[in-house]
Design a protein around this nucleic acid. Structure first.
Length: 275
DNA sequence: CTCCAGGCGCCTT
DNA sequence: AAGGCGCATGGA
């Protein structure tokens, strides 16, 4: 593994369950409690129970991705150069599809801190408790779709998710019933996979693209949220205001083979720039 | 107080 | 097709 900006990656708005403690970043991956701490050579990982095979974590963290190779495919313009300089070591995680889909349904018109709070409450109330060190806070798996589908809407609303509650509940039902199969999306063309995700209520183009990128690693996905919209308009279209359709076409052609990665660098660049 | 947040669904033109 | 608006909730 080469450079890895662990803290930047874990709190860059991709995943919402990582908390910084004096001992490191604590979170849950594939129903396992994990603590991560950066070291001079790599990342030190602690778990609650012994594991022999670490591929689940290497895959989640995407440690084997060569970032220089990725960023070398970015367009050669001053904005991307600055973004790359500012985001050195930033990576895309590879998350579990269900958790990613559910948490991004909860993300609409919410600030990242708020999303984290909602997700934490949801997991504490409805997730299975999992082994964690005694000195650590109790840990919970992300609730299975079956569990959320069986809840009353009011139980979800009590987690402060507001109007997103019926969206999450119905999506949980679609997934748990098998009407939508998240495991089969890997083998579909990206347009089909996107359309399938968008069958879920509360999932439009932006959230579908987040799931395609953050859970399936599809680099053709380029989520356009308010931050990216501002970035594109300010950096690439300072004079004219292109239509959303035109803007989408631009992102599909301009950012290259790792467009999804470029999007995450732009997002983080915009959010960490001047106030 | 108002404005906005990693949007979406639905209703008008 | 394109634009406007309401939706819960909380922070700035």
């Amino acid at each position: 593994m080469r450079e890895y900006a662990l803290g930047e990656t874990l709190r860059s708005g991709q995943a919402f369950r990582w908390r910084l403690t004096p001992a490191g970043w604590e979170g849950v991956v594939k129903a396992r409690w994990v603590r991560l701490a950066p070291e001079t050579e790599g990342i030190r990982a602690s778990v609650a129970e012994p594991v022999g095979d670490w591929r689940w974590l290497e895959n989640y963290l995407q440690t084997s991705v060569d970032l220089r190779e990725v960023t070398s495919t970015f367009p050669d313009d001053p904005h991307m150069k600055r973004a790359v300089a500012q985001c050195r070591g930033l990576r895309l995680l590879r998350q579990e599809p269900w958790e990613c889909l559910a948490t991004f349904i909860l993300s609409s018109t919410k600030q990242i801190v708020q999303i984290q709070q909602i997700v934490q409450t949801l997991c504490e109330r409805f997730g299975e408790q999992i082994p964690a060190p005694a000195e650590s806070a109790p840990a919970f798996a992300f609730p299975a779709p079956e569990r959320l589908a069986a809840l009353a809407e009011g139980e979800l609303r009590a987690c402060k998710m507001g109007f997103r509650a019926p969206y999450l509940r119905e999506t949980a039902r679609l997934v748990s019933s098998g009407e939508i199969n998240l495991h089969s999306l890997h083998s579909h063309p990206v347009e089909e996979a996107r359309a399938e995700l968008m069958r879920c209520p509360g999932v439009g183009r932006k959230i579908a693209d987040c799931v395609l990128l953050f859970a399936y690693g599809l680099q053709q996905a380029f989520p356009i949220d308010v931050w990216i919209l501002r970035a594109l308009q300010q950096l690439y279209f300072p004079r004219r205001r292109p239509t959303p359709k035109r803007l989408l076409k631009f992102t599909e052609t301009y950012f290259g083979a790792n467009a999804g990665y470029a999007q995450q660098y732009l997002f983080h660049y915009m959010r960490t720039q001047n106030p």
